[in-house]
């Protein structure tokens, strides 16, 4: 009886294996083909390509894309532009024509996917301020900085200087603009429309331009001729 049972098991095992076919196995083919503009695919792509710097929530050092203001202010075109061609000195270009891993079409779909994943969470006032830098008046900006920024970022502040030369040599003017309008709310840095010292309803659009142009004007050329943004 035992022999019969063992025989049956053996025969069915062989049938199962032979029935599997004679094709050489290619495990990589089994990877599910995801549509890039779905929130899940966007999240997966974000996790493997962006999260190291941009991260989610409070972690990570660069601008987080789940910021409450980000998807309210940034248009798809601006995000696509930043991903495709890089930003400042530290974000590389991701489009294939500049050596990146993605095609223009993939980047467009990815941005659509991110907006569908996180766009609904954008609760900031948004409207009114441009996602791209606008020129302002440094002299007026000095006043705004002294009144509303210096308590944290000035010489007596605890959040660290934003006029540090090394910092200014790493951050582009667009980067300064983004920092001001989006902030790092999770870490305590308010966005442009949050309550600020002496400005309970935040900055006006013009004040953002003035203060960014003032910070930028504090940048002096590097002595060693190294790159500036």
């Amino acid at each position: 009886m035992n022999c019969v049972r063992a025989g049956c098991c053996t025969v069915s095992l062989w049938c199962w294996m032979v029935g599997g076919g004679c094709e050489r196995p290619h495990p990589e083919q089994h990877a599910a083909a995801l549509s890039l503009d779905s929130p899940a695919a966007a999240q997966a792509l974000f996790d493997s390509n962006c999260r190291g710097c941009h991260s989610q929530g409070a972690e990570g050092a660069a601008l987080p894309l789940m910021n409450k203001n980000y998807w309210a202010i940034a248009t798809d075109a601006v995000v696509v532009q930043a991903i495709s061609h890089g930003q400042g000195r530290l974000m590389p270009a991701y489009i294939d024509s500049e050596g990146g891993p993605f095609t223009a079409q993939e980047i467009a779909l990815f941005v659509k996917g991110m907006r569908s994943a996180w766009g609904a969470g954008a609760v900031g006032r948004g409207g009114g301020v441009s996602p791209l830098i606008v020129a302002g008046d440094p002299a007026l900006g000095a006043q705004v900085f002294a009144e509303s920024c210096a308590s944290c970022h000035g010489s007596q502040g605890t959040a660290g200087s934003v006029t540090d030369q090394m910092y200014l040599r790493l951050v582009s003017d667009q980067g300064l603009w983004s920092s001001v309008i989006y902030g790092r709310c999770e870490l305590g840095m308010p966005a442009w429309d949050d309550a600020l010292p002496n400005r309970p309803s935040g900055l006006t659009v013009a004040e953002v331009a003035h203060v960014v142009s003032w910070i930028s004007s504090q940048r002096v050329a590097a002595h060693d001729g190294s790159a500036t943004p």
Partner: peptide
């Protein structure tokens, strides 16, 4: 290997703008 892992919160909280840029350079 780990370039896509974010810098933990405890290493970015309370850092200055320059130190934050340093954390980005660290990933970069």
């Amino acid at each position: 290997g780990w370039s896509s892992l974010p810098t933990p919160v405890k290493f970015v909280r309370g850092r200055t703008p320059l130190e934050m840029q340093g954390a980005v350079v660290f990933q970069f």
